[in-house]
């Protein structure tokens, strides 16, 4: 098991996949912060005066983490941040599912009232966090800027 977790190729692939997802997810949010703020508002989980701060800074944290993950820079800190963000996203989505709020994810586009279930997005998040947990546990240091 340890050998699989520490495998250089698996770690590289997961770094690139998770990093690319974070970069892609940040794109629309950076372009349209007002739409993303609206998406956060729909969850009714964040105090009103913090919504815009989150809408402005969170996409950049996603983008910088995505790039840092792929190139292997500030790696340990990045992996911890990625895992913390994934936990935060899953709590938000799980809460929406629990409260029966009809809302789409808002992961890659604006969250809004929607008939589609947040459950599908939650399942995707389980897949992503599985990869990011592997990155957290892996001791592989190959193909990284960090030595």
């Amino acid at each position: 098991m340890r050998r699989i977790i520490d495998n250089d190729f698996i770690t590289l692939i997961f770094r690139v996949v998770v990093g690319a997802i974070f970069i892609y997810a940040s794109y629309y949010k950076i372009i349209e912060p007002a739409v993303f703020a609206k998406g956060i508002w729909f969850y009714h989980m964040v105090p009103g005066n913090l919504i815009n701060l989150l809408a402005v800074f969170l996409p950049w944290i996603e983008l910088v983490c995505g790039v840092a993950l792929i190139i292997g820079w500030q790696y340990r800190g990045t992996v911890i941040l990625v895992n913390l963000m994934m936990i935060m996203f899953m709590i938000a989505l799980g809460s929406a599912v629990y409260r029966g709020i009809s809302i789409d994810c808002g992961c890659f586009q604006a969250a809004q009232a929607s008939d589609s279930s947040a459950m599908n997005s939650l399942l995707w998040d389980v897949g992503i966090i599985t990869m990011s947990i592997q990155l957290c546990l892996s001791k592989s240091k190959k193909w990284m800027l960090d030595k």
């Binding site: 912060p33 913090l50 815009n52 701060l53 809408a55 402005v56 996409p59 950049w60 983008l63 910088v64």
Partner: peptide, 23 residues
């Protein structure tokens, strides 16, 4: 770095929003 880039972008972007919402 993220907060710095986010702040700069939100200052210069035509789509900028107030940093503190008044919801």
């Amino acid at each position: 770095i993220s907060i710095l880039l986010g702040s700069i972008t939100n200052f210069v972007s035509p789509n900028k929003i107030p940093f503190i919402g008044e919801y």
